[in-house]
């Protein structure tokens, strides 16, 4: 950990260079299941962001207190707490959204991204950096979810945020709203990133 790292760099890396979904391919379980519409994707992104931010702050604050051998258990307890808070809040303030997302809110607990950030970053950095890193990662994650959700909604339902965009005669590609569509769409997006990567390499050579 060098002392020269800047807040903006730590923030931006999560969004693009180390994007948790596109580059690191983390936390796929809860994301594929709920990204069949843009709204669901954003809601899931916000809920994950809340949990990530909350637990990162807490872990960073407690980093001197937490004893090494029990740190994973401690992280999990902290994460589970924030997930429960998110779960109850969504159920209280938007029952419709809660019905859509269902058990997948609770599954944020086992999202490898969150536990990974605690272990790799928050437990070793000051609160300020932890917040910056968590927000960057959270925005990167939410952005990826949104990309997936939006493309799947546009193709799968012919709508964007619920309003039709192709006129009434559009024939929706139902598959995109179904599980295989989730796998394939993420596969294509990863393919696209690989292609970008390769083109960059090709240009460098």
């Amino acid at each position: 950990m060098s002392a020269t790292k800047s807040y903006s760099e730590e923030f931006l890396k999560g969004i693009w260079k180390e994007n948790p979904v596109f580059i690191q391919v983390l936390g796929m379980c809860p994301m594929l299941a709920v990204t069949n519409t843009a709204v669901n994707a954003i809601a899931m992104g916000v809920a994950t962001a809340f949990v990530l931010l909350g637990s990162s702050i807490l872990v960073s604050l407690l980093r001197k207190v937490i004893a090494k051998p029990v740190r994973i258990s401690t992280y999990i307890v902290i994460i589970a707490t924030f997930v429960t808070v998110a779960d109850y809040s969504i159920e209280a303030f938007s029952p419709a959204l809660h019905r859509e997302l269902g058990a997948f809110i609770a599954l944020i607990v086992v999202n490898c991204l969150i536990l990974g950030r605690q272990e790799a970053y928050s437990s070793k950095n000051t609160v300020g950096f932890a917040i910056v890193d968590a927000s960057g990662m959270a925005i990167g994650f939410a952005f990826a979810l949104f990309c997936l959700g939006a493309t799947r909604e546009i193709l799968g339902f012919g709508t964007f945020f619920g309003s039709p965009i192709f006129g009434e005669h559009f024939e929706p590609w139902v598959i995109m709203a179904l599980p295989p569509g989730g796998f394939l769409m993420l596969g294509f997006i990863l393919l696209f990133f690989n292609w970008l990567e390769q083109r960059k390499k090709g240009a460098a050579v």
């Binding site: 295989p180 569509g181 796998f183 394939l184 596969g187 294509f188 990863l190 393919l191 690989n194």
Partner: peptide, 8 residues
């Protein structure tokens, strides 16, 4: 990417 497509 390939694994994802096979899974799909």
């Amino acid at each position: 990417a390939l694994n994802m497509i096979i899974a799909g």
